[in-house]
Simulated assay, not measured.
Amino acid sequence: MFANVKTALMAGAAVLAAAPVLAEEVNVYSYRQPELLQPLLDAFTEETGIDVNMAYLAKGMVERLQAEGDRTPADLVFTVDISRLAAVVNAGVTQPITTEYLQEHVPAQYHDPDGHWWGLTTRARVVYASKDRVADEDVTTYEDLADPKWEGRICTRSGTHTYMLALTAAMIHHHGEEYAKEWLEGVKSNLARKPEGNDRAQVKAIWAGQCDISLGNTYYMGQMLEDAEQTEWANSVRLLFPEFDNGGTHVNISGVAMTKAAPNKENAIKLMEFLTSPAAQELYAEANHEYPIAPGTEATALVESWGTFTADDVNLMTLADLRDDALRITQEVDFDG
């Protein structure tokens, strides 16, 4: 049995599966690393007296929940990216939860219309641009990235990565599949190299002079600034916040969902509401260099210093529903080839 959060973090998923159910606890499966969540969970336990037992699952969460079925000890799932949230929902292992508090603190575009998942923080997918070779006004829209002026100047990770597929899905939403496919072809023709590496690897390539701009999530700037080896990469670029021609800046989320067989449902609801409270949202966002979403909350001074933007108002579940189309056209244009 897990006595507290720290024990849970050390013991891992195997012990959590064997833990007996207690009245004053809540059990979590998390895609996010434990150290990013521990301050929040400690604060919740201090406020409520409810212990939080967390198992970190780097992969296989859906398969595990399906295998456990009604015997699962998990009450909540923490994950990042709308595609992962949607995958859990589509697997039939979650249940809808709607409370007045959740509705007041989570804007409509950041929760499932049916209540199967609720957003906690957001991150924008933006352009990392060389301070020396790119001006602020050079990139104002995502559509601009297909302009031939960028030929040989763009770096990006694989087009089939979940972050890139979400952006492509948003392009489909705004302009239709035919336009989105042409856009992908245009971006591909502008690549300086074959897609490879993660978002930070693209910034390193800009620093090394291999390309001038890249696509990346905002929080990677904060992570690079905290890494002595990567600080120089971060200082070589600025963040630009493009928009869609008929929309805002593309964002994605971290979120929480309740399992279908949650054994500690009432305690789990308390944790969900705690996580969407303004104070908890700001603490969570600070730990991850993200943006809190509750009305009246603010990002950290560092995150705010990167620039302001208007988030696209499409409900993210709409983008999740377009993921398969985004993957198909990405493969049709052989984006990674």
Rank of each mutant, 00 (worst) to 15 (best):
D144P: 00
T45K: 11
T156V: 04
A8S: 14
T168P: 04
P39E: 08
V28G: 03
N27K: 12
E290T: 15
L85H: 09
I213A: 05
R71I: 07
V127A: 06
N217K: 04
G119D: 10
M61D: 12
M54S: 02
S30D: 00
I206M: 04
A11H: 02
T122M: 12
F78G: 04
W117S: 08
L57A: 14
H174P: 00
H116G: 07
P242K: 07
A3M: 08
T160A: 08
A43R: 03
A205I: 10
G115A: 06
V77F: 14
V77G: 09
D132T: 05
K59F: 08
F44Y: 07
T141S: 10
D138M: 04
A320T: 02
Y219H: 13
F78C: 06
L120V: 15
Q230A: 15
D313L: 05
V5H: 09
V134H: 01
A208C: 02
E137M: 00
V93L: 08
L9H: 03
Q66E: 15
K59D: 12
R323I: 09
T231Q: 14
T98I: 10
N217Q: 13
L275I: 09
N190K: 06
P278V: 11
Q230Y: 14
V106P: 00
G248A: 01
A294E: 12
T308I: 14
G186K: 07
E266M: 05
I97W: 10
E229A: 14
G255V: 11
K6I: 10
Q95F: 07
G69A: 08
E177V: 15
V237Q: 02
R32K: 03
F2K: 06
D212T: 00
A11L: 02
V139L: 00
V126H: 12
E151H: 15
Y101L: 08
I172F: 04
